[in-house]
C-alpha cells in the first residue's frame, strides 16, 4: 500500500525533496554569508542588544538595505508553504483520481476505502509536514542569527513572525491540506479544488487570526493613571485595555475619552503634565488596566493556534472520509 501511494505521488514527493534540498542549501549559504557580513562590518554587538543602543548606525542601515528583501523572501516561503501544500498536494490527492475515474480501480480491490484513503493521506502529508518543519527551522535559525537587525526584532506577535514560528505553520499546513482533500472529494474537480481551496484557506487564515488570541490564556495588569502599563512596549500582545473608576469598574471607552479630553483642556489653557495627571482620578479615571499575553508566553498562543487549525483539519478529514464512502 505504501508503495502504491508513493508511486502515484512520486512527482509531488520528488518536488518536495527538491524544494528541501534547494531551500536548505540556499538558507545555509545565505546565513553564513550574512554572519560574515555582520562580523566584517562590526555589527556583531547590534545583534544581541537593543537597536537603539547600536552605535554603528550607518553599517546597520546598509545591512538592512542589503538584507531586508531576502528576509522577507525567507518569511514569505514559510508563510506560503502551507498554502502550497494544500493546493498542490491536498487538492489533487483524491480529485485527480475521481476526475480520471481511477478510484474505481481502487474501490474494486479488496482493501477498504478507508484504508486506501489513510495510506494516501499519510504518504502525501507526512513528507510535506517534515519538509515544512525543516525549512521553517532553517529560516528561523537564519533570522535569529540576524537578531535585532532582522525581522525578529518586531517581536513574536508581529503577524508575519507569528505565522512562521513554533507550531503554527504545521497547523496551517494540516488545515490547508485537509481543506484541499475535502474540496477535491466534494467537487471531484482538481482545478476547482485547487482554486477554491486556496481562496478558502486565505479567507480562513484571516478570519481565524483574531479568534485565536481569544482562546489563549491572558494576564491582567493594573496601574494608577500616572504610570505607564509597560506592556505596549515590551513586546507583549495587548488584547484589551481601558480605565477603571474608583470602585474598580471599567469605564466605557467613549466616556473615558471625553473625560481625558476634558482634563487636557479644562479652561482653554493647556494644563501642565502634573495638572493633567491629577485631573484624571478626580474625574473618575482611577486606574488603567490591560489584558495581555507576555512575549515569553507566545508558545501558548502557538499551541492554541495549532489546536484550532488542527481540529478544523481533523473535521475536514472526517468529512473527506465520509464523502469518499458515499462516492460511486
Amino acid at each position: 500500500m505504501i508503495w502504491t501511494s508513493w508511486r502515484l505521488q512520486r512527482l509531488q514527493l520528488l518536488t518536495l525533496l527538491g524544494m528541501l534540498v534547494v531551500g536548505a542549501a540556499a538558507i545555509v549559504l545565505l546565513r553564513s554569508n550574512m554572519v560574515d557580513t555582520i562580523t566584517s562590518t562590526g555589527l556583531a554587538q547590534c545583534v544581541t542588544q537593543d537597536v537603539k543602543d547600536c552605535t554603528a548606525s550607518e553599517a546597520m542601515t546598509d545591512f538592512r538595505a542589503a538584507w531586508s528583501n531576502l528576509f522577507y523572501l525567507g518569511q514569505a516561503a514559510i508563510l506560503g508553504l502551507p498554502a502550497l501544500v494544500g493546493v498542490f498536494i491536498g487538492a489533487p490527492l483524491f480529485a485527480r483520481e475521481l476526475e480520471q475515474g481511477t478510484h474505481v480501480l481502487a474501490f474494486t480491490q479488496s482493501v477498504s476505502r478507508t484504508r486506501w484513503m489513510v495510506s494516501k493521506l499519510v504518504v502525501a502529508l507526512v513528507p510535506a509536514v517534515i519538509v515544512l518543519a525543516v525549512l521553517q527551522y532553517l529560516v528561523w535559525w537564519w533570522l535569529s542569527s540576524a537578531g535585532a537587525l532582522g525581522p525578529l526584532n518586531n517581536g513574536p506577535y508581529n503577524a508575519i513572525n507569528f505565522s512562521i514560528a513554533h507550531a503554527s505553520p504545521v497547523g496551517y499546513a494540516l488545515f490547508a491540506f485537509a481543506l484541499g482533500t475535502f474540496l477535491g472529494v466534494v467537487s471531484r474537480r482538481t482545478l476547482v479544488a485547487m482554486t477554491a481551496g486556496l481562496a478558502a484557506f486565505i479567507a480562513m487564515r484571516f478570519a481565524l487570526s483574531a479568534v485565536v488570541d481569544r482562546f489563549a490564556p491572558t494576564q491582567r495588569m493594573e496601574t494608577t493613571g500616572d504610570k505607564s502599563l509597560g506592556v505596549e512596549t515590551d513586546g507583549s500582545l495587548v488584547l484589551g485595555r481601558g480605565w477603571l473608576d474608583a470602585a474598580g469598574l471599567p469605564v466605557p471607552e467613549d466616556r473615558a475619552r471625553t473625560l481625558i479630553q476634558a482634563c487636557k483642556a479644562p479652561t482653554g489653557a493647556k494644563p501642565s503634565q502634573e495638572e493633567f495627571l491629577a485631573c484624571l482620578p478626580r474625574s473618575g479615571l482611577a486606574k488603567r488596566y490591560a489584558y495581555y499575553i507576555p512575549e515569553s508566553q507566545a508558545w501558548q498562543v502557538h499551541l492554541v493556534d495549532l489546536a484550532v487549525f488542527g481540529v478544523l483539519a481533523g473535521l475536514l478529514l472526517v468529512g473527506t472520509a465520509w464523502a469518499l464512502r458515499r462516492q460511486s
Binding site: 500500500m1 508503495w3 502504491t4 508511486r7 481511477t102 480501480l105
Partner: peptide
C-alpha cells in the same frame, strides 16, 4: 480506469498490493 502513467508491470504491482488474494 487504469492509472495511465503507470507501466503495465507497475500496475500489476499496484493491484497486487491492494488485494489479499
Amino acid at each position: 480506469p487504469l492509472h495511465r502513467d503507470l507501466t503495465v508491470r507497475e500496475l500489476e504491482r499496484f493491484c497486487a498490493a491492494m488485494n489479499d488474494r
